[in-house]
């Protein structure tokens, strides 16, 4: 039997035009699911961007064991940090900084010798992301005489942990939404299948295969999924255009929240693919339940 994909697409489009209400409900449901998921994902990546901007001037300190060779450590750090700015902090410099940061309270340090503070090598890495900072810190552990590597911003770690938990929550949310949407949409599409039961019956009586009967419904599901998720992407773009400038000025951020960062192509493609898959699964459920019926 010859394959005529275009005739299937034509039949799917005809069916959608004949049942505009069902089409609207299916598209609308998939729109809501993909929009909510997209909004969640975009908020997360936006939050990560903001966090990165705040983290700004990341400084990694490699604390050295007493008696370590400062010069060798600095050269090793320079090599490992790939040309970043490296500064050697001797124990006395560390004490001076500590006193300066304490201000009037510095009197409490009276009589404390510089030798109680460890020498360190500091690597400045402006604009580096948290992941990169962690990776760099890991490499710097190899500096001869290194005892401890610290990249200050402990609170960033906590926030990052929170974000990664939210990412998981997002996945769970998406899974739950996808399941709910598939069931909802398949129930809607089942009405459409039911409305065409005479046509299906006659098709089968004159020798149509199940695949022939099914194909237009599946194509219809994919088209509805693409329409719903496409609208969601457009809505997310619009929301970004409205919100991003306000948000940036509200938190006094230097860098703009670029669309490509908040709504990266991978996310957009994921939403479109997810929407199409939802439509496909929903229509397969709908027509399968009908066809497999005795």
């Amino acid at each position: 039997m010859a394959l005529r994909p275009l005739s299937f697409v034509r039949r799917a489009l005809e069916a959608m035009v004949r049942g505009p209400f069902m089409t609207a409900v299916a598209v609308g449901t998939i729109f809501v699911a993909t929009f909510v998921t997209g909004l969640f994902a975009a908020s997360l990546s936006g939050a990560e961007r903001l966090l990165g901007a705040w983290a700004g001037d990341v400084q990694i300190a490699v604390y050295l064991a007493p008696g370590a060779d400062l010069g060798a450590a600095a050269r090793a750090a320079e090599a490992l940090a790939g040309g970043r700015e490296v500064e050697v902090v001797t124990p006395s410099e560390a004490l001076r900084r500590l006193k300066a940061s304490l201000g009037p309270e510095a009197a409490a340090l009276e009589g404390v010798g510089a030798e109680v503070l460890p020498a360190s090598v500091e690597v400045r890495a402006p604009g580096i992301s948290l992941q990169e900072a962690r990776a760099l810190a890991g490499k710097l552990a190899a500096v001869p005489g290194a005892r401890d590597v610290d990249f200050g911003n402990a609170w960033l770690e906590k926030v990052e942990l929170l974000l990664s938990r939210l990412r998981w929550a997002g996945l769970v949310l998406f899974a739950a939404l996808a399941l709910g949407t598939a069931v909802l949409v398949s129930n809607t599409l089942r009405l459409g299948v039911f409305a065409r039961r005479d046509e299906i019956e006659i098709m089968k009586l004159v020798g149509a295969t199940d695949a022939y009967v099914e194909a237009p419904f599946l194509i219809e599901g994919v088209l509805q999924g693409l329409a719903g998720s496409g609208l969601a992407v457009v809505a997310l773009y619009a929301l970004h255009a409205i919100l991003a400038p306000r948000l940036v000025s509200a938190v006094g951020l230097a860098a703009p929240l670029l669309r490509a960062q908040v709504l990266p192509p991978a996310l957009v493609l994921g939403l479109l693919g997810g929407g199409a898959a939802l439509g496909l699964v929903a229509s397969a459920l709908a027509v399968g339940r009908y066809l497999r019926k005795p």
């Binding site: 010859a2 005529r4 005739s7 006659i202 009586l205 004159v206 020798g207």
Partner: peptide, 29 residues
């Protein structure tokens, strides 16, 4: 098969109804 109740599709034209068995076989337009 000629069915007792015809089993014609009311929202399809005469041409489309008769074309059904051929389209189902994958014949070109």
């Amino acid at each position: 098969v000629i069915f007792q109740d015809f089993k014609l599709l009311p929202h399809r034209t005469v041409f489309e109804n008769v074309a059904f068995p051929l389209e189902v076989r994958g014949l070109g337009p």
